[in-house]
Nucleic acid binder design. Structure first.
Lengths: 189, 189
DNA sequence: AGCCGTGATGTCAGTTACAGACATCACCCT
DNA sequence: AGGGTGATGTCTGTAACTGACATCACGGCT
């Protein structure tokens, strides 16, 4: 908690989400977001590298969760089972969020190509980190990258399903179900 | 073949690749690329939506190839087998390119986060198109999205392997091998 | 041959996303 | 009470795009 007016960063995130949802991403300027949060444009860019990043606040934490899940999986488990453990950890963390907020956020992201681009980039980053963790478990290439990327595919699809509202079950359940579906699909149908 | 000095677009692509490789992506301005190609900055942005897009020239064609491959796969094949047919088509097309050029291009992309972001976005677009094609074959959700995204994972890994040079076999072979590896990894190790 | 439509390009001006340099100022520690 | 620190404001600059308008080579039509 800073010594200034509390939590500029958090207020910027809320302001951005509200404005992106109301006017759309490109119709919103960084200066407008800053004004709504009661700070300067310069302060916005000190907290977030660019206009998109403001929507991806907790992504570092999430990556940590996933990697930790992979690392802590029993050593005798196969590569993809370890990734599945990482996905469980991710689901546990994301499932804590208020579902309406997640829905709102996902809707904003889905509505804009640049934001979708950033989301894919985040998933690719997670996959890279997961692949590194798999290497430390003795998994080679290209198996590590394939397992990691396949896992991120499951994460994306499950999150879409959960946040888009067609599926009312909780996130960990949807995640496990999606993973089973991927296994079935690649097995040969 | 335009009626003007031939192929501004092509010259812009070459100029961009050369400059990005030499100075790096952010150290290169659109004006510099345009100057090297003998046109104006404005012309650059008429041919390419943004600075990154100039490196992804044939992506529309590639998407067409992939989708066509999926659509033309025998109707009784499963979802992932149809995707595999699309990957064969992609490998056939990409394999035609001069390998040193592909290597050069991949190296430039790998060196810059924004370009990697765009590459992931392209793959996501292909996946969306493939999922639509799968729907028309009667595949439901989330199976279609999972199969399509898993396929794009294989494409990415195989392309990296091929272009990064550690694997000297031809692209269709590397692609099929990677697909087999994914099947093995998700099957349970 | 001469006129005319068309599409690719040049020119110009404007908006906005970002980034560096420097000043400020509330808070904490001593 | 005074100095250090980190978050913020201010000012200024670069470069990625974008819209509006002029131009001009070419190909077709008469």
């Amino acid at each position: 908690m800073g010594r200034w007016q509390s939590d500029s960063r958090g207020r910027l995130q809320e302001a951005a989400l509200a404005l992106y949802a109301a006017r759309g991403f490109d119709q919103t300027t960084a200066a407008e977001i800053a004004a709504r949060a009661g700070v300067t444009e310069r302060t916005f860019f000190r907290h977030f590298a660019d206009k998109r990043e403001v929507l991806f606040g907790g992504s570092d934490l999430l990556q940590e969760q996933i990697v930790t899940g992979v690392v802590q999986a029993p050593g005798e488990w196969g590569a993809f089972d370890a990734v599945a453990a990482g996905l469980d950890a991710a689901a546990a963390m994301l499932g804590e969020l208020r579902r309406d907020l997640s829905r709102r956020r996902q809707a904003v992201i889905a509505a804009n190509p640049e934001l979708r681009e950033r989301e894919m980039a985040k998933l690719a980053d997670y996959a890279t980190a997961v692949a590194v963790a798999l290497h430390q478990r003795g998994v080679g290439e290209p198996q590590a990258s394939l397992a990691a990327l396949a896992g991120m595919t499951v994460l994306r699809v499950a999150l879409d399903l959960w946040a888009s509202g067609s599926d009312e079950r909780d996130l960990p359940t949807v995640m496990r179900e999606s993973l089973a579906e991927l296994r079935a699909v690649t097995a040969g149908d």
